[in-house]
């Protein structure tokens, strides 16, 4: 593969791991970055067109599919798509009922969105690594990273949203005083001298949750994607299908589990935010 492009294996992999970033160049003009250095120069005021785009496309796909089923939803005999959608909804509803002990109508649809959306984003991994980038290359697009969950921006975007929800519901349920009280006086108890230790530990606990959430998804997906890319880069074309399918089978399990774990932990964290000690 790599020889066709006149790239080394390292360059090939690097190429596949580079985002299509749009932002302000060092010279002040706006445009697409053509190298990692240019991306660095753009700083925060830039956007990864590819992962962002795919994530929105997949989210929209989820919404449209489920909205179609929802519009036709009746208590009569369900058809194919409706069956599938209802099965998902039922499973997630049961999980939420089991794991979430507060009373909140937002949690179940939130969990559904997270699970299906992340699953779809992960499932982009299974598309052979060169198909979509090559297709876009025909239109002169230099980079295309198709799996949104291999972009830490995406996973952190999700997990920070979850963190915001956690803080929001903590304050909503326990009041601002209750929330700060928990920060200041847990876990060691109400003592003025223990406040720094308590604050440190609780803040750490609060911050580590979204970080581990995001890194777990990112790491797993990048590892899977990397294995696909290495298969594509190192092996001759005629034998690629064999390791590809072997890994795809295992990876199918991993992407489902990772989407499930992300959803599960979101539910658990939000449930914790609803409980007062």
């Amino acid at each position: 593969m790599s020889s066709e492009h006149g790239q080394t294996t390292g360059e090939y992999i690097q190429h596949h791991l580079t985002n299509l970033t749009y932002g302000q160049h060092a010279d002040g003009s706006w445009g697409i970055a053509h190298s990692a250095e240019e991306v660095k120069e753009m700083g925060f005021a830039a956007i990864n067109l590819d992962t962002m785009g795919w994530s929105i496309v997949l989210g929209a796909l989820f919404i449209i599919l489920f909205r179609l089923a929802a519009r036709k939803a009746t208590s009569g005999v369900p058809g194919g798509l409706q069956n599938f959608v209802e099965y998902m909804v039922e499973v997630i509803d049961n999980i939420v009922k089991e794991s979430f002990h507060g009373k909140n109508d937002l949690i179940a649809p939130l969990a559904l969105t997270i699970f299906v959306w992340i699953f779809l984003m992960n499932a982009m991994d299974l598309v052979p690594v060169d198909f979509i980038p090559r297709f876009f290359a025909l239109f002169g697009v230099p980079y295309m990273k198709v799996v949104p969950s291999t972009d830490p921006n995406i996973t952190f975007g999700l997990s920070i949203s979850v963190l915001c929800l956690m803080i929001f519901y903590s304050i909503k349920v326990k009041g601002f005083g209750g929330f700060t009280g928990e920060l200041l006086f847990q876990p060691f108890g109400k003592n003025i001298f223990l406040i720094p230790a308590n604050l440190f530990l609780e803040t750490m606990g609060l911050v580590v949750k979204p970080i581990s959430l995001a890194l777990r998804l990112y790491g797993n997906m990048l590892a899977g994607e990397l294995v696909f890319i290495i298969i594509a880069a190192m092996l001759p074309l005629w034998i690629q299908w064999l390791p590809y399918f072997a890994w795809a089978l295992l990876h199918l399990l991993i992407i489902t589990i990772q989407a499930f774990v992300f959803m599960m932990l979101t539910i658990v964290y939000l449930s914790m935010a609803h409980e007062s000690h």
């Binding site: 956007i47 994530s55 649809p109 969105t113 975007g157």
Partner: peptide, 17 residues
């Protein structure tokens, strides 16, 4: 490279949810 994709994803997430 942390960039505005983070914010974009958060907004998209909020909208979809």
């Amino acid at each position: 490279n942390p960039n505005a994709t983070l914010i974009g994803q958060m907004i998209a997430f909020a909208i979809f949810v």
